[in-house]
Simulated scan of single mutants.
Amino acid sequence: MIIRSKSKKKIVMSFLNLSAHQDINTLSTNDIIDNANISRGTFYNHFKNKIGIVNFMEESISESLDEEFENVDKEYSNFFYILTENVFPIVYEDREYIKVLYKFYEPQLFEFLQTHYEKFLIPYFEHYDEKELGIPKYFTLTFFFRVILDAIMAWISQPIPIAPSEFKKIFYKLINNSMTEICGIVIRE
Results as ranks from 00 to 15, higher is better:
E68T: 05
S62V: 05
E93H: 11
S165I: 14
F145V: 01
K103T: 15
N30S: 11
L149E: 00
F88G: 04
S60L: 06
E189A: 12
I170R: 07
I182Y: 05
D31I: 00
V54C: 02
N49Q: 08
K48D: 14
L18C: 08
Y124F: 13
Y124D: 05
S62A: 15
D150Q: 10
T84S: 12
I11H: 03
F167Q: 01
V72Q: 00
L113R: 03
R95C: 02
I160R: 10
H116M: 10
Y105H: 11
I148S: 06
F43D: 00
V12A: 00
P161L: 06
W155N: 01
S77A: 02
F43P: 01
D73L: 04
V147S: 11
I11M: 05
I160H: 04
I185G: 06
I98E: 03
I38M: 03
S14I: 00
I152D: 01
K50S: 04
Y172T: 07
M57W: 03
N78M: 04
T142W: 00
E93Y: 10
E189V: 08
Q114E: 11
E58Q: 13
I122R: 12
K48V: 12
P89H: 01
F47T: 04
I185S: 06
Y124K: 12
D150T: 11
P159V: 12
A154Y: 10
E130A: 14
F80R: 07
L83Y: 07
E96R: 15
D73N: 15
R146W: 10
D94Q: 08
F43S: 09
S19M: 05
L141E: 11
T142V: 05
K103M: 15
F112Y: 13
Q22F: 03
A36L: 12
A163W: 08
N49C: 13
I3A: 07
I162P: 00
H46A: 07
T142P: 05
I182A: 12
S39N: 08
F145G: 03
A20T: 10
I122D: 11
I98W: 02
S157C: 10
I152T: 00
K9M: 08
Y76I: 00
H116I: 03
Y102D: 03
F15H: 05
L141C: 07
G52V: 14
A154I: 14
V72Y: 04
I185A: 10
L101K: 02
I156M: 04
K9V: 00
F110C: 00
K119L: 08
A163G: 05
D150V: 10
L121Q: 08
L113S: 05
Y128L: 09
L18F: 06
N17Q: 09
K137Y: 01
D129A: 14
S14T: 11
